[in-house]
Nucleic acid binder design. Sequence first.
DNA 1: CTCGGTCAGTTGGTTTTTCGAACTGACTAC
DNA 2: GTAGTCAGTTCGAAAAACCAACTGACCGAG
Lengths: 145, 145
Amino acid sequence: MPTAPADRTPRDCTIADALEVVGDRWSLLVVRELFYAQRRFTEIARNTGAPRDILTTRLRKLVEHGVIAREQYSDRPPRYEYRLTEAGRALSPVLLTLKQWGHEHVRQGPDPVRFDHVCGHEFVGELHCAACGDALDAGDLTLER
Amino acid sequence: MPTAPADRTPRDCTIADALEVVGDRWSLLVVRELFYAQRRFTEIARNTGAPRDILTTRLRKLVEHGVIAREQYSDRPPRYEYRLTEAGRALSPVLLTLKQWGHEHVRQGPDPVRFDHVCGHEFVGELHCAACGDALDAGDLTLER
DNA sequence: CTCGGTCAGTTGGTTTTTCGAACTGACTAC
DNA sequence: GTAGTCAGTTCGAAAAACCAACTGACCGAG
């Protein structure tokens, strides 16, 4: 017997679970568009660049997983648009941290999109510990179990 | 002329740039493994579940983009392992927020992996505004440009 | 009325990518 | 010298992505 048959035992992991839902080429871009209040199929297709048929299957999958909701906005002809659910809105920290990482480590040049915080300054996110309130620092975390 | 030829003009977007680098099925899982200090090809393949040939191309791509580094740890036979670069380590907020979202909106049941903060409590991340220090709240952000 | 346009998808055919599983080549340990 | 380790490579098959055109229901202008 050569190599053991499939010696792969993927880790039981919540990150993997999350990626199962939004970890493909288009889903997070769809969510981004909904954050930008583009709810219509055609707009989402245009702004993400996703092929229309692929977009169809992604939207269905996101609906299935409760990230977005499909709502009829016209009877005759039947027309639908999409909205973020609570779970979808909860993805904002993921998108914001991704954007920040992209800005600091991928893109050269200024960010084409900027967010301002109510405090008046450009928003730059910092991950804090909800318990003690301190900003997260490398090495402050220890793995349990 | 029927439908206009390719009426898709993807948004110029830093999130999209970031996803270009780590937005496929396996890359973020590879980064996760490196966070867990699994540096070897075989370990990464086992723990992520990625097919070995795909893993090869992903690792090369991540090296190309400066997320990880390939280092020789044995001369004869030549053997290599992988390490996170500074840019790779900077992905921790992305992984942590993804994990948290997965925990709250995808997975049912307890998280198989837990992080404890130096303060003694289980780490739960909260995104704060770096300028004013306040925790991010829905609607606190306004889109500029 | 008919012509052009809008809109949320479908359809069909092709190209790309993924995938599984076996195989390499250079070693080490027994 | 036989078995095992390890970082990949190779092969063929299956799945997914992709593109461009097409639908079917409507609207508004001429």
